[in-house]
Design a protein around this nucleic acid. Structure first.
Lengths: 162, 162
DNA sequence: TTACGTGCAAATAATTTGCAGTCCC
DNA sequence: GGGACTGCAAATTATTTGCACGTAA
């Protein structure tokens, strides 16, 4: 379950740049990516993958991606969208983001980065700047190790000066 | 909705210490706290408040608190537990924690602090040490301001040396 | 071909809500 | 006493699952 797959083989930012840059070959590249992850490149997976990765880094919910697929005339069911999102996540193509709100959010940027969460609209935005860091991580208890550090900066609309 | 209540009037850590210290008067203090928050101190609310605040800082889910209430012979329904948790949260007595997993977690420590999340057991643990900080917060976009910064350090069991 | 995928609908799971009855002030 | 609170069950919302059919290798 953990030895053969290597989802972080290359810098995911590099990947994203690839998609946006060369749109001709991106399809082929995506199929390859799926195959390497042990996922058969079916029409639905390639289509969803295209919606997810062609436009640079994105944050989606299952519902949102499903709507996009419908608009794009991709024949797919909501259940398959859920399944696909989780398969992509397990393969390291996506990452789940923990913000509150009932819905689960997925991020196409699997690299180490943090998020703004706009409370008003339940929207997630990448923090682009590199000048944020968590300093002096505390020691994990007993036999534990750090798997990931999530930082969410929650934003609200600034009160009108009144 | 925002001018009259002042949930952060005093340091919540002080509050927690209070509960554990003087258990005789804590009931009365809790009732007062509820009243100040505009919540009538009913049997259920006082009972749940007691379960929540009497043992120092805690992290609970609705389900968990409900089970405790049943064990404690507190006559309460799951729906009321949900309602109460949200009322407490709105009043600033509790805080919601965003980790993933389907269930919503509530934290009795409303002060500024961060969390470990143990992936294996879906457990939340306070980070006690003060030597963690987010440095150089990025500038929020346009008319937004920072409402809160959440930091979750996700832990997994360290792989046996194999 | 043939196992892996997918669609649909039904099943779960967590949470919310409506309303009749109960309890605090 | 009267309005706020609660309990229950039914309703919602998000997500998962089972199974017959479709499709990529």
């Amino acid at each position: 379950m953990s030895t053969s797959t290597e989802p972080y083989r290359d810098d995911p930012r590099e990947k994203s740049r690839l998609w946006t840059a060369q749109s001709g070959c991106a399809f082929h590249d995506l199929r390859l990516k799926l195959k390497n992850s042990g996922l058969r490149p079916t029409r639905q997976r390639v289509g969803l993958g295209w919606l997810l990765f062609a436009k640079g880094d994105r944050h989606v919910t299952a519902e949102l991606l499903f709507e996009e697929a419908v608009k794009a005339r991709l024949p797919v069911s909501l259940a398959t969208v859920y399944n696909t999102l989780h398969q992509f996540t397990e393969s390291g193509l996506l990452r789940e983001i923990a913000v509150d709100g009932a819905k689960t959010h997925f991020d196409t940027n699997t690299g180490n980065h943090y998020h703004f969460f706009i409370e008003d609209t339940n929207t997630i935005v990448d923090i682009q700047e590199a000048n944020i860091a968590v300093s002096a991580l505390p020691t994990p208890p007993d036999g534990m190790e750090i798997s990931r550090v999530d930082v969410v900066i929650r934003l609200r609309r600034k009160e009108p000066s009144s």
